[in-house]
């Protein structure tokens, strides 16, 4: 839990294409579950108002790394983190950081849609209301649903249960719910893996829209999705960062042989 201070962290493996404005800066981040390492000394920046994708074979630590960015790992017993994650210059795991307040700024969308068994309206309004939102809740709900490209489909049934929506609609509702908090950063863990191609296309379009206002980090198994949708890509394998760079670089001129093999589908 106690991060060691390593201020001189620099990305020696990636001399090119370091984004200028990073909101999150991972510095030699290592994470283990009850002593079993899952992520080993990973360093890369997350650029502001860009989409960064994290790719890699199953079990390589993508979700673990993503969950460390809004301290969702705090709920898992036995997790320890070494290294530092800087959020606008502040140590995310510093003693003065309130994880609850942090999660209002760094939202998350999960792999499986997990709407609350409440109405569509309440799903979106719940986060802002517990956090003391002042302003028109109706407007906020509408605006969030519009941003998540769900408004047209649900505007006549806002007070019906969210469990009556299709999987793809539920996932967009979960995105709307996260957006209603107006977070700085949106973390998404394989948000399309439970969805059909049409819903997936919806959500990819959505990512493009959201990019101008939000910083997005997305874990994905889908190479097309990573190459289409993201600006930067981090490739992990067995808990190690193999390569980080612009998505174009990673998919066209990867520096590492492993990366090339993975993105061209020859393993993993």
């Amino acid at each position: 839990m106690n991060p060691q201070t390593t201020p001189e962290a620099s990305d020696s493996e990636n001399p090119i294409s370091i984004p200028e404005n990073s909101v999150l800066d991972l510095q030699k981040v290592s994470i283990s579950y009850s002593g079993n390492p899952a992520v080993n000394g990973v360093s890369f920046p997350i650029a502001e108002h860009k989409i960064t994708s994290i790719i890699g074979p199953s079990g390589c630590g993508k979700s673990t790394l993503l969950r460390s960015l809004n301290r969702m790992n705090d709920f898992v017993d036995g997790v320890t983190l070494d290294g530092q994650i800087l959020y606008m210059g502040q140590d995310l795991y510093g003693n003065d950081i309130d994880p609850v307040a942090l999660r209002r700024r760094i939202g998350m969308v999960f792999q499986k849609p997990n709407p609350f068994p409440k109405s569509i309206y309440k799903n979106v309004a719940w986060g802002p209301s517990i956090n003391g939102y002042i302003g028109s809740m109706d407007e906020l709900v509408e605006q969030s649903l519009v941003q998540a490209a769900l408004w047209e489909e649900v505007k006549d049934r806002l007070h019906e249960s969210a469990l009556g929506l299709s999987g793809g609609q539920q996932q967009r509702l979960c995105i709307a719910r996260a957006l209603a908090m107006s977070p700085d950063i949106l973390l998404m863990d394989e948000p399309c893996s439970a969805l059909d191609p049409i819903s997936t296309a919806h959500i990819e379009d959505l990512l493009f829209e959201l990019k101008s206002n939000y910083t997005i980090v997305i874990v994905t198994h889908n190479m097309q999705q990573a190459s289409r949708a993201s600006d930067y890509t981090a490739f992990l394998e067995l808990g190690n960062l193999i390569e980080f760079g612009t998505t174009r670089q990673i998919f066209t001129v990867p520096q590492q042989k492993r990366t090339e093999e993975y993105v061209t589908g020859r393993f993993g």
């Binding site: 969702m72 999660r103 999960f110 997990n114 986060g127 517990i130």
Partner: peptide, 21 residues
């Protein structure tokens, strides 16, 4: 389901809010 708790925590809820609401 635990995923509901996680979804609530990810919106900046406290344990008390997650439990009661």
């Amino acid at each position: 389901p635990d995923t509901l708790r996680q979804g609530a925590y990810a919106l900046g809820a406290t344990s008390f809010e997650v439990t009661t609401q």
